[in-house]
Design a protein around this nucleic acid. Structure first.
Lengths: 347, 347
DNA sequence: GAGTCGGCCCAAAACGTTTTGAATGCGGCG
DNA sequence: CGCCGCATTCAAAACGTTTTGGGCCGACTC
């Protein structure tokens, strides 16, 4: 059903029908009603491409999710983040365009999206320190919002982020307060900015309390269950094992728990763990009674919603100064932490 | 950079440039080279919307992922499935459009996509038995491929699926062979077709071996860690607890393991578990040495790749008879299964 | 009663491509 | 020499919208 065909029915011109549907004032109330009725009856929807061509807007937001080419791991938080964002896009009449590209091709993907005019703006995922994409997007001239931060970026940018540094410092201090001295850090890939900042928070806490950081207790890698397990197995088998750990992802924490239990160690009694918890919908921590894990919690779905709103606002009124929304990850007490064992295994 | 602007540069008409770029034969070799060079130099990409308008094709595939409005859980397999599919779309020059809609609005979402001409085809996720969407899409006239099956659907349709019934029958038989008699089923939502068929497989195995099914041992729900935990906790606390379970998702299995360990029971010794394993990229079962879980394994990312290819083929040559690709989930031996305890706790 | 203004509507241009239909120039053939 | 066919190229229409620039008519002002 065309606009022309739709217009022919009540015997009007396409112009008038278009105006009636888009709420322009210069159309009579009676006609507007007739048009609305006809449109409804024929299930009329304006053709996206034609409308976009005429208005110059794509009414779509792009999410470029980079795939580290080696092992093709897709971060499980994407699903929840995108579902949060998608909800807001839908409400505003925007589509969501997903681009899964090997990270080597990422720059080209951005340029393409702009040149082809496919999207009106985009979300930048998994930023690194001094992330090159920020300069690139400024150059290209596409509105964007970063999920996370990029320390040292030369140009300003909008972002929604979690107070990673503070959260991890608090988590580490909490463990220290419980008497732990050998505390491991099981981190995400430290090429990522969020991981860097969590590490800083961890280090600051140790330093403030006069505990020397031990490189043997710090590990970093893709946030998979296997990597959590590996880290746990290696550290717990070492001569002077940690009595506690701060962990960057609940999935890694599950791997770590597996490694502990394999050695007959119980979380919260023999080994304490504080993990970051993105509040993934299929992996709720503490949906029943006491949470399994003590955690720094921040809903990534909520972050998606906020990022979407910020981006839509940037598109609506360009030229605004970049904004920052900081989500605070609260420390949630669970069963995975407890006082350091007396005369800890650390000897 | 326009087509017109691009054409002005080497002093050609838009027509010729368009033809040169799209590989039509009626353009001289020399001109074609000149055009290619100019296009490359100016990073020219044809405007998606204009191209789509002219050709009548959107060069985009839609994925409608329904959100059960109550708790907004997004199935964790979507990320991997979509990443597999997206890879193939990209290779074929297609975009991926994601629609996150409350399942009540799903029909309208499909009609909209068609009416607005936003996509050339789509993937149907999480089909139910006699799923209404199949008839709807036939009526609408959009090519589609179903991920899964819809038993009892009146009309034919293309699909890629796993042999759920056989896999779960085998898994159950395997446990029976190990001496287990009280075997639980921790299933996904049985509104979903895949869950129905897994249940059938489970029941068939019990029946064949002359074991009466016990409703108290069968549970069904959203595939979250919490639900796995709840099922495990309830069943293991019951008077006549199961010695084994078949589980529909590795995430539920992790919850089940947690419940078992809470009672001091060890998987593979006190309780045996066979779980389905979608080979999620961040939750690999058996990346190191022996798999944690004995599992029916089938890569959902691979399913995504195949579904994408089938759909693109359907779009390329319409009118083909619907096709079916059946992936076989092999039974992978892990540490979570062992012989039934002698004089099992079943008393 | 003439002129002006507002309300309502329409024809045509524009967005950036592809595709149709036709034009140009050139060599070869009769 | 005239015609034909071929290889190239181009102008214009088309895709389905929005937007620009009027046009018409009745009511109001003086």
């Amino acid at each position: 059903m065309n606009l022309r065909q739709l217009a022919a029915h009540p015997g009007l011109s396409p112009t008038t029908v278009s105006r009636a549907l888009n709420g322009y004032p210069e159309v009579g109330a009676a006609t507007r009603a007739r048009v609305a009725e006809a449109a409804h009856r024929h299930h009329y929807r304006p053709n996206t491409r034609a409308k976009g061509l005429a208005t110059g807007r794509a009414m779509a937001i792009g999410h470029v999710i980079p795939t580290r080419s080696r092992h093709e791991i897709v971060n499980p938080i994407f699903a929840d983040f995108i579902s949060g964002a998608g909800e807001r896009y839908a409400a505003a009449g925007y589509d969501l365009l997903l681009s899964v590209v090997p990270d080597a091709d990422e720059a080209r993907a951005y340029r393409d999206l702009k040149a082809r005019g496919t999207v009106d703006g985009l979300i930048v995922h998994a930023p690194r320190a001094e992330d090159a994409r920020i300069a690139l997007l400024h150059e290209i001239g596409l509105p964007f919002v970063v999920h996370g931060r990029s320390t040292g970026a030369a140009l300003p940018y909008s972002r929604v982020d979690v107070n990673n540094l503070r959260a991890f410092r608090r988590a580490t201090e909490f463990l220290i307060d419980l008497g732990h001295r050998r505390i491991a850090l099981v981190n995400g890939l430290e090429a990522m900015d969020f991981a860097l900042r969590r590490r800083q928070g961890y280090l600051q806490a140790l330093e403030t309390r006069g505990i020397a950081a031990d490189p043997a207790l710090m590990t970093s890698g893709e946030m998979t269950e296997t990597n959590g397990y590996r880290a746990g197995r290696a550290m717990l088998a070492a001569p002077d094992p940690p009595t506690a750990a701060v962990v960057s992802s609940i999935i890694m924490a599950i791997g770590l728990r597996r490694a502990a239990e394999e050695r007959g160690l119980k979380l919260g009694r023999d080994v304490s763990v504080v993990t970051h918890d993105d509040d993934l919908s299929y992996l709720r921590n503490g949906e029943d009674d006491v949470p399994m894990f003590t955690a720094t919690r921040s809903s990534v779905r909520e972050a998606g919603r906020i990022a979407a709103e910020m981006l839509l606002e940037r598109i609506r009124s360009p030229g605004q100064a970049p904004a920052t929304r900081l989500l605070r990850a609260g420390l949630v007490l669970g069963q995975s932490t407890g006082p350091a064992p007396r005369g800890a295994r650390s000897g």
